[in-house]
Nucleic acid binder design. Structure first.
Lengths: 104, 104
DNA sequence: GAATCGCATAAGTACGTGCTTATGTGTTCG
DNA sequence: CGAACACATAAGCACGTACTTATGCGATTC
């Protein structure tokens, strides 16, 4: 039941904010905290949850740990969503355009 | 913050099971309970959560209430996912195929 | 219209989760 | 090597959440 991981991970607004910040550019845990009013342990715990959900991956760089979006998690969500394509409304223009891009 | 609703709704495995069952065919609350070992109030509460997340919609039919998948919620998830298309891996073959279908 | 059925809501409870403070681990630098 | 730094982990606590039992409410049936 891997779906449990990413849905649970994204159910928390703070974690979504962290993920969104990483999507704008990879950075280390300290940089992530800037402007977020979150303690260091809390950030570390959130990153651990996002990591186990494969939404984020880490890379040690000296004494810093750089974090970046892990495509694996997004792929899993996409696959989950794909199961219900029969119910996708016509107006999901965003996905249509995206897929066209990917086919090129 | 509407994203909160559907991510939180899908974070529970029981609710995902209910949603999945409805995706296979719309039915009323009693029919949903069959083979699920879940009390009637619990089912009702789960359906209320799915409803407020726009993942499911109801339709009164006599003294039954028929439930079906609401495309609105799926569209919201798709829109959320689309924001991170820059990170979609090449191997999301499933979505590629799906979008081709939709473009026809 | 009274009983029954399908479902929703109320209230209480056990457990999960996100936070805190405190401490540990690995890395760099003087 | 020892101090400082970046981060992870531990333990405890307040709160949210998913369940339970009990009851309410609309619709059907006799």
């Amino acid at each position: 039941m891997i779906e449990n991981d990413f849905f649970r991970a994204l159910a928390d607004p703070t974690r979504r904010a962290i993920f969104e910040k990483l999507a704008a550019g990879s950075m280390n845990a300290s940089a992530l905290r800037e402007g977020m009013e979150i303690s260091q342990p809390a950030m570390s715990q959130h990153l651990a949850v996002l990591r186990s959900a494969k939404l984020v991956r880490e890379e040690r760089q000296g004494r810093f740990v750089n974090y970046e979006v892990d495509p694996d998690g997004l792929a899993l969500i996409a696959q989950w969503l794909a199961k219900y394509r029969a119910y996708w409304p016509e107006r999901i223009a965003a996905l249509k355009v995206l897929l066209k891009d990917m086919d090129q």
